[in-house]
Design a protein around this nucleic acid. Structure first.
Length: 270
DNA sequence: AGTCGCGCCTGGCGGC
DNA sequence: TGCCGCCAGGCGCGAC
C-alpha cells in the first residue's frame, strides 16, 4: 500500500507519541511476515527508550540506544498507537507496549511487511543498493539522465526502481508522469535532459503535496491516529480509467507495465 | 548488469 | 446468496 508519503505521514505521526517512551513489553503475534520477526526483540527491547523516529525509502526506523527497529508496511500495512487495553484486531501482528499504557501496533492483512532489527553499527543488506531520496538535491535531472542512458525500460518502471530513486510507487509514478506530460511507455534511455528536469520537478511536487495531505487512502491506509490521508482527492489519473482527463477532452487509459497497472492520458502525455 | 516474471498473502469487488 | 476469478499502494529472487 504505502509509498513514501504514507510512510512519512506515519513517521511524523509516531514521533510525538512514542519518542522518549520506554518499551515495557513486545508482542509478536504472527511472526511470519515477509521475513520472520526476530524472536529476541521480546527481550532486547525491554526497558529500552525510543530515541527518535525516521524514514528511509519506505522503511520506518525506530531508533534505540542499541540499534534500530526497521519496519516496512508492505502492501497493506499500517501502524496505530492505541490504549494498550484495546483488544487486538485480526491482523495486528506486532506490538510495542509502552510505559504510558499505549501500544504501537502493526496491522498488516497481506503480511508483505517486515519487522527487523539492525544492531548499532551494522547495516542491513536491504539498505545497500537504495537510490537517493527523491526530496533531496541528490535526486536531480543530471543524475536521472546519467542513470538512464542505455536503459531499455519504460520510464514508469524506471522511476519505480528503488536503486534509481526510492519511495516512488505505483500511484505516484503515474501521477508524476501525468504532471510531467511524459508518456509512461517512453524508454528511459531516450528521454532528454530537459524532459528529466520537468520530471524531477513533478515527482518532487507530487510527493511533497501528498505528504502535506497526509498521504493517499484508497482503502486500508490510515495515519497513526486512524485518520485517512486526503491526497486521493487530488489524484489526476490513478484509479480513474475511462474517466475524463482533467486537462483535455480525452479519457484516462489503463495499461499493464511490469505486472503493475499504469494510468495515463494518451493525449496529454507524449 | 539489466530486464523480466513469479511468488509471497488476504480481502473486496464484479460477474454469473 | 454464493462461488469464482481478478485485482490491489511492494519487493526480492532466480533465470536469461
Amino acid at each position: 500500500m504505502p509509498e513514501l508519503p504514507e510512510v512519512e505521514t506515519t513517521a511524523r505521526g509516531l514521533k510525538p507519541l512514542i519518542v522518549n517512551q520506554s518499551v515495557i513489553a513486545v508482542g509478536i503475534y504472527r511472526p511470519k511476515l515477509r521475513w520472520e520477526i526476530p524472536k529476541h526483540l521480546a527481550t532486547t527491547l525491554i526497558n529500552q527508550v525510543i530515541q527518535s523516529v525516521e524514514r528511509r525509502a519506505k522503511y520506518l526506523l525506530i531508533n534505540f540506544e542499541g540499534g534500530t527497529l526497521v519496519i516496512h508496511l508492505g502492501m497493506s500495512g499500517s501502524i496505530r498507537v492505541v490504549p494498550t487495553e484495546l483488544p487486538l484486531k485480526k491482523h495486528e501482528h506486532f506490538e510495542l507496549k509502552l510505559y504510558n499504557n499505549t501500544s504501537l501496533r502493526l496491522d498488516d492483512p497481506r503480511r508483505f511487511g517486515a519487522v527487523l532489527w539492525q544492531k548499532k553499527g551494522e547495516t542491513l543488506s536491504l539498505f545497500d543498493s537504495l537510490g537517493p531520496e527523491p526530496l533531496t538535491d541528490d535526486f536531480n535531472a543530471n543524475y536521472l539522465f546519467q542513470r538512464s542512458r542505455g536503459r531499455t525500460q519504460n520510464i514508469k518502471t524506471f522511476v519505480m526502481n528503488s536503486t534509481v530513486v526510492v519511495g516512488v510507487g505505483n500511484i505516484y509514478a503515474s501521477e508524476s508522469l501525468f504532471l510531467a506530460k511524459i508518456s509512461p511507455k517512453i524508454l528511459a534511455g531516450k528521454i532528454s535532459l530537459k524532459r528529466y528536469q520537468v520530471l524531477i520537478q513533478s515527482i518532487k511536487s507530487i510527493l511533497s503535496e501528498a505528504i502535506d495531505k497526509g498521504g493517499t487512502t484508497l482503502k486500508d491506509f490510515s495515519g497513526v491516529d486512524d485518520k485517512p490521508g486526503y491526497f486521493a482527492q487530488k489524484l489526476s489519473v490513478y484509479d480513474r480509467v475511462d474517466k475524463p482527463c482533467l486537462q483535455c477532452n480525452g479519457t484516462i487509459k489503463k495499461i499493464t507495465q511490469n505486472q503493475r497497472t499504469t494510468y495515463y492520458c494518451s493525449k496529454c502525455q507524449k
